[in-house]
Design a protein around this nucleic acid. Structure first.
Lengths: 153, 153
DNA sequence: GCGCTGTGGTTGACATGTCACCGATCATCG
DNA sequence: CGATGATCGGTGACATGTCAACCACAGCGC
């Protein structure tokens, strides 16, 4: 249980620190950063980059569709992304990175990486980093498979 | 960065799982559980147990006073805790565990412990558990000292 | 073509958390 | 005593997330 408590406390303080940095440096929340980041990293399959189906993005991020929809609405109002219709399917919509969104994430990334390094990575030994990755994988294995994850909405 | 991503994903899914269990088994949120748990574990210094100053509790949990105040208000309405005046200090107030609160946490604890074991601990080797604890401690060291933590409100 | 079921996405009500600010009380010092 | 500044909590407005219900269209079988 000591490990559990340490983990819990770390989770709380670490994300507070990193979010604070992120907000200060770039005016983004962790959620904003994730969305933008997942848009630039979009699968380069089709020629269409910087865009993703809302559903597909939600599934990839393990967010509920509702959460993503609300969040996209807010980011849209700030000009970071925009919605766009899908050709073959009149129900669906794309989430598309705007020019401003691209600038924002490109400027934010180096700071964020640095922040993560500073608060987490640099404090750990290579061994600890390795094990942390392992732990993540081990714990995730069972969870990702089953219908677990997001109670779809 | 692989470790960071794994950590992030684990954080998301693991807390989703565990909170789901907790809500199903006991009708509590993680926050509720923490508050109750920190009340039963209250420092046995004075004879007065199951009670804690709001400020002191907030500091101990690394929550802002505002957050705790709001949350206590909600828990008070559900009969889990109650506020009580402090003798020497007309500003302050105690948060006190009610009988119902005590029953609730006592029933919830075994399930919760089991849930944490099932989703996390049992999946890790003793070595991994040890390192996880270490990581928590190493990362927390620097953060806890400085005025960091909670931007007091 | 037409109805049925499933999917993609949105919406509104509500729970939770943050932030900034207030109001009261306390402690201290001249 | 009385002013001053810190401390204890609470409050209201707002950001974010969840949940349940919903609409519009798609896909399929007949």
């Amino acid at each position: 249980m000591r490990a559990w408590l340490a983990y819990r406390r770390m989770r709380l303080l670490l994300s507070a620190e990193i979010n604070r940095d992120l907000a200060r440096d770039s005016g983004l929340s962790e959620a904003d950063y994730d969305v933008l980041s997942n848009l630039t990293t979009a699968p380069t399959t089709a020629g269409a980059a910087d865009r993703r189906r809302l559903s597909e993005l939600a599934a990839h991020m393990q967010w509920s569709k509702s959460r993503l929809s609300h969040h996209i609405t807010r980011m849209e109002q700030r000009g970071l992304v925009r919605r766009e219709e899908v050709d073959g399917d009149a129900r669906g919509s794309f989430v598309v990175l705007t020019a401003q969104g691209r600038r924002t994430i490109e400027r934010a990334a180096p700071h964020h990486v640095h922040s993560v390094r500073r608060h987490l990575i640099d404090r750990l030994s290579p061994e600890q980093i390795r094990v942390l990755g392992e732990i993540g994988d081990v714990v995730l294995g069972p969870l990702e498979g089953e219908g677990e994850g997001i109670p779809e909405n």
